[in-house]
Simulated scan of single mutants.
Amino acid sequence: MNISEAARQTGLSAKQIRDYEKHGLLAPAQRHNNGYRHYNENDLIRLKFIRHAREVGFSLQQTAELLKLQDNPHRNSSEVKALTAKHIEALNTQIQSLQNMVLELQRWHDACKGDGCPECPILEGLVGSNQKVS
């Protein structure tokens, strides 16, 4: 199948597929005489794996590591679990950071009267603590 059909079946764009090939996550596609890429069922399985890994936030490097483990029939599942635990920890750190941002923005938002006066706690908060915006 060609790249547009592979894209349709995997939920990826043709550009993403070419990028994954460029980054070595997918072996270079076979080419037809006309130069068009050709993908088989194994390529689709690999592309779906990549898409799922990216959907849960694994980086390209982490996805490459997971693919190496997937390709190794003698893999040790503890390696997969350790990589995933590290990713979960990073996601939890990001979540905490985002929650802190929401709290700060909400505090500024709640303090802003939103009326016609020029004082704005949101702008003051963005400038820095205890500094007035002129």
Rank of each mutant, 00 (worst) to 15 (best):
S4W: 08
S4K: 02
E5T: 08
A6P: 02
A6F: 05
A6I: 02
T10M: 04
G11F: 05
S13L: 00
S13K: 00
S13F: 01
A14N: 00
K15C: 00
Q16Y: 00
Q16S: 13
I17Q: 01
I17D: 01
I17P: 00
D19N: 12
D19W: 12
D19G: 00
Y20R: 10
Y20K: 05
E21G: 07
H23P: 00
G24K: 07
L25C: 01
L26V: 15
P28V: 10
A29S: 10
Q30M: 04
Q30V: 11
R31T: 11
H32C: 11
N33R: 01
N33I: 14
N34Y: 11
N34F: 10
N34W: 09
G35P: 07
Y36A: 02
Y39N: 04
N40T: 02
N40M: 02
E41F: 01
E41S: 15
N42S: 15
N42R: 06
D43L: 02
D43F: 06
L44D: 08
L44K: 03
I45G: 01
I45S: 11
I45A: 09
R46D: 04
R46K: 14
R46P: 00
F49Y: 10
A53F: 00
A53M: 12
R54G: 06
R54I: 10
R54D: 06
E55Y: 06
E55F: 05
E55T: 11
F58P: 08
F58D: 07
S59H: 01
S59T: 15
L60I: 15
Q61P: 02
Q61M: 08
Q61L: 13
T63N: 01
E65Y: 00
E65C: 10
L66T: 12
L67C: 14
L67G: 02
L67S: 09
K68I: 14
L69E: 13
N72H: 13
P73F: 04
H74W: 04
H74P: 00
N76P: 01
S77Q: 03
V80E: 03
A82E: 15
A82D: 14
L83I: 11
T84G: 10
T84F: 07
A85T: 10
A85P: 11
A85M: 02
I88Y: 04
A90C: 01
A90G: 05
L91Y: 00
T93R: 07
Q94H: 10
Q96C: 03
Q96K: 07
L98H: 13
L98W: 08
Q99G: 07
N100R: 13
N100H: 09
M101V: 15
V102L: 15
V102T: 09
L103V: 13
L103K: 12
L105T: 12
Q106R: 06
Q106N: 12
R107N: 12
R107A: 15
R107F: 09
R107I: 13
W108C: 13
D110T: 15
A111R: 12
C112K: 05
C112N: 11
C112H: 08
G114Q: 09
D115T: 07
C117T: 11
E119P: 12
C120V: 09
L123R: 13
L123Q: 15
L123C: 14
E124S: 07
G125C: 14
V127M: 13
N130T: 06
N130M: 10
Q131V: 14
Q131R: 07
Q131Y: 08
K132W: 03
K132Q: 14
V133K: 01
S134Q: 05
S134H: 03
